[in-house]
Design a protein around this nucleic acid. Sequence first.
DNA 1: CCTCGGCGTCAGGCCGCCGTGAAGATCGGC
DNA 2: GCCGATCTTCACGGCGGCCTGACGCCGAGG
Lengths: 231, 231
Amino acid sequence: MTAPRQRILVCDDEPQILRALRITLRNEGFEVQAASGAVEALDAAALQPPDAAILDLLLPDGDGIEMTRRLREWSGLPIIVLSAVGEEEQKVRALEAGADDYVTKPFSPRELVARLRAALRRAVPLADEPVLRAGEIELDLGARAVRRAGEEVHLTPIEFRLLSALMSRPGRLLTHSTLLTEVWGNAYADDVATLRTHIANLRRKVEPDDARRRHIRTDAGVGYRFVSEPS
Amino acid sequence: MTAPRQRILVCDDEPQILRALRITLRNEGFEVQAASGAVEALDAAALQPPDAAILDLLLPDGDGIEMTRRLREWSGLPIIVLSAVGEEEQKVRALEAGADDYVTKPFSPRELVARLRAALRRAVPLADEPVLRAGEIELDLGARAVRRAGEEVHLTPIEFRLLSALMSRPGRLLTHSTLLTEVWGNAYADDVATLRTHIANLRRKVEPDDARRRHIRTDAGVGYRFVSEPS
DNA sequence: CCTCGGCGTCAGGCCGCCGTGAAGATCGGC
DNA sequence: GCCGATCTTCACGGCGGCCTGACGCCGAGG
């Protein structure tokens, strides 16, 4: 299970802070998107929504509280407001505007990361991983499960990877060598006999009996393709 | 739909702090349940789960971090740890244990309330029933107990964490390494032999004898999954 | 009509993974 | 220090996934 790295939007007008944050977060395994101004940060967030945001309270072209409000109009992403001002009034306003946490500078990198992780943990997990469907076949990538007409079908690891490769590009022709390298790795690149056997096993498990309505089509001499709606 | 007042569990051994918190929270419209010790607080939380908890770090009969861990075993309620110690190490440990925020004394009442509101805003609205069921198996996260057909079954700590991991995502395949990191921690990521042994012990304790109707399914070479309704 | 290449299918066998029992190691309580 | 509970390690038997090879079918081309 390879989780993609989480993207953090960082907005601060002081270059050295930006730099310190970038290094700290990178080391902790996050991907950092830096912005030095409010407008730039909001544009970046709209263009490609990050998993969380760390915003400075005071910026030349805006402030963290206003940015929080703007972001909250359309997103529930975790927001941490950063500031040199420890004043109670600011903290309360930021939190009421929708920020998840408020950290005062100078901050401890470890604590900031811990607070960021706590905020990310709370965030609503984004929509579950996709379920590929075609006719009565369901391939659930997240659960690593396959159903046919609602019934659970057990696939071996190779069969599962094979079906995933086919169903993730419906209609598209996948050559023998493409499938072999994708499912087996680079070693078996020309062992078509093995591929045939596994395709046969796969068909037996997930295909309707009628040979004319098969989802897995053979392109003789070239490869296979998965068609969503067999004629 | 009249929203009932939100109940906050407050745990501190200093009476004057308890009193101050009670007054502050009452004025802000919360219902307060006070406890002066760790055991008392955990019992109260188990008996009637609150909407959030504010825990002192240092208590005569325990500490806030351990309480956080215990609560997190079965509940996702917002937790704010309160402490006179501003030390970075404590903050990080508390947040990593599952706390949502960490506030140092002396604290501003307004800020604390703002942070509490921010944490409550994030919380999943539905207080999830901490009892997982499947067939004749019941796993009670709060009581850390497992029953089979009503009969109490004794599980070792590892077996309990293993079953929790499996039952909390029914139908989903959990890789060997996923289970190992989740149950043992990051170190044992490839000791599959141990995992097999514990799975065997677990099956002996909670599974029906009939091998075809097992809840814990093996996916050879990949991992295990828990199926709620074995065919 | 025959040949031939590509394909699907099946049976066989190897090897690795799995389940299981038991023995050794570790730890905490008495 | 002893003892019980728990966890880990190891060896062994069984089984299932995977690869291989043989066979028959089919369509294209001669």
